[in-house]
């Protein structure tokens, strides 16, 4: 296959088009403590917890939602798949809930911190890149399946 020179207009266009696709977004999954009695969560249950509507997990434990904040493309993909909204809209939504004293947004952490917090807290529930899942947590919902 003939490759285009890097400064060829078509390859510039290709690079531009590729940059619009969140290439390394990853696959966001929902994880809980491995000894949690929760085996799976429905999409509605995930929405209720991560959009601040429900403060407890379905088993009654007080929920402690955390999310992997980097890369932003993973978060963007998570909220796009969950509620069809862009990140600025999610930030504005949380500003309304937080500053009216109704609810507090999930804590933004690194992937490793999500793994640590979820493996140490029975009520913790995290958004994590599927590629980072290990034995310390259990996947209870996948957004892409």
């Amino acid at each position: 296959m003939r490759t285009l020179p890097p400064n060829h207009p078509a390859s510039v266009l290709l690079v531009l088009l590729l940059s619009l696709v969140p290439a390394q977004a990853g696959e966001p999954v929902i994880v809980v403590h491995p000894e949690s009695r929760i085996q799976s969560l429905t999409r509605d249950e995930v929405i209720n917890i991560f959009m601040g509507r429900q403060k407890r997990l379905p088993n009654g434990t007080v929920a402690m939602p955390v999310e992997q904040a980097q890369p932003p493309a993973l978060r963007a993909r998570f909220y796009q798949l969950l509620v069809g909204k862009d990140l600025p809209d999610i930030s504005a939504y949380w500003a309304r809930l937080l500053y009216s004293g109704q609810a507090q947004p999930p804590q933004a952490l690194t992937a490793e911190e999500v793994l640590e917090v979820v493996s140490e807290n029975k009520g913790a529930i995290g958004v994590l890149d599927a590629a980072r899942v290990d034995r310390r947590v259990r996947v209870v919902h996948s957004l892409t399946r």
Partner: peptide, 9 residues
């Protein structure tokens, strides 16, 4: 109750 939070609207 969030009319002062411009960022939210």
């Amino acid at each position: 109750d969030t009319r002062n939070v411009g960022y939210s609207y």
